[in-house]
Nucleic acid binder design. Structure first.
Lengths: 210, 210
DNA sequence: CCATTAATGCGACAACTGTTGCATTAAGAT
DNA sequence: ATCTTAATGCAACAGTTGTCGCATTAATGG
């Protein structure tokens, strides 16, 4: 049974199974808020949830599995990217969501990223999340093309990566103090770059030049 | 004594101290090449190096400390960013170095990033590395300004982050298969964006508009 | 209501991580 | 050559992580 994947139906979805899951996931959040990622252990979560640690190992496998399930529980299957009427504002809103997720308390997203370096459960959940999110964001670029804001031959994925990567880079890897202007500034730069054809695929690659 | 910082002179830099360090760091590399980051433990390195694990704990504190010292050993104090004559080629060369570091065998850089989520030694070493590298790269942007390739009021750090963040995002966080075209493609996009004023600081921020 | 069986608890065990006090080795100064 | 002391080794210990076989509880179907 893999609780990290809500697409796999539980064999016994009744009272105790659901209750244990709710208790455990609440314990994960509480432990993260009060003690941070370093203190997020199977034992700590089990004790806090009032269940046996064997139960947690059997259902969630590791800390990464717990975090993946917390993310799964809170994620919105109907999520769509912002649609504000302009590329810059769409990207700003998208970046603000990423910024909020990376600076949230409890820090579910940053904890999941941290866990992904040691837990296959976490790595798999992250991969699925990002694959899904980047795919769902492509219409945002298509809308900008239709509005005539950017060239028709813009590479949607390259634009989206360029717009979002600096947020992750600053907040997760560089660990710089969160600058609330970052979402808008990065969105503005990349929207302007895209309008100028920086992400057009028809431009010859640098290595094609003599 | 902190071996992770080469600026702190060892009290006994003689034969055995230097020899043990060389053996241990070689063991770190060999262990990473043959078994990957997950199997990089203090015990494994100590056994491989032929030293006692207490020695490793005392000198390096944790796996992060080991990786930081390996990085320190291989780093070039005289490193300067590329100077090819054009912003795009400079950024391409810089990105290629990052790409090579992130796909290298042994994967010292990616291991250090992974370790940085659990080891203060690793986090400190990474912070120092990136602070140093981004600072040393600023002349690359200054040269582009002097050549007239980009506006005078370009924000050097924003440009450098935009040019490099997608590499880290793809290779470290998204874990996408390394695309050898990525360094050049990202450099080309960002050089074009910069030329078009995407990183100028005088442009009004998005939130300043009504 | 009862039988079947999935989910959970229990307690023991093994492996791993990290530390400590004392002994030994060797670097460095005289 | 000798003395001082930093570096290292040894073996024991403690705590944490992860697993296992069996027992108990409770979800589910008939």
């Amino acid at each position: 049974m893999s609780p990290a994947s809500s697409t796999t139906p539980a064999r016994r979805p009744g009272g105790r199974t659901a209750r244990v899951r709710a208790q455990v996931l609440a314990a994960v959040r509480a432990q993260l808020v009060e003690h941070g990622y370093d203190a997020l252990t199977i034992d700590a979560v089990a004790a806090r949830a009032g269940v046996h640690r064997t139960t947690v190992y059997r259902r969630w496998r590791d800390v990464g599995g717990l975090l993946a399930d917390v993310l799964d529980e809170t994620s919105d299957d109907d999520w769509r990217p912002p649609d504000t009427g302009s590329l810059e504002d769409d990207l700003t809103a998208l970046n603000q969501e990423i910024f909020d997720a990376l600076t949230a308390d409890p820090p579910i997203t940053t904890a999941l990223i941290a866990a992904s370096f040691r837990s296959e459960e976490a790595a798999r959940a992250l991969r699925r999340l990002w694959q899904d999110r980047y795919t769902r964001c492509e219409p945002l670029v298509d809308r900008a093309v239709r509005r005539g804001e950017i060239p028709r031959d813009t590479d949607p994925r390259a634009l989206l990566i360029a717009a979002t990567a600096p947020l992750y880079h600053h907040l997760v890897l560089l660990r710089t103090p969160p600058d609330p202007r970052l979402p808008a500034q990065t969105a503005r730069s990349i929207a302007k770059a895209a309008a100028g054809g920086a992400f057009s695929v028809s431009a010859p690659p640098a290595e094609a030049r003599p």
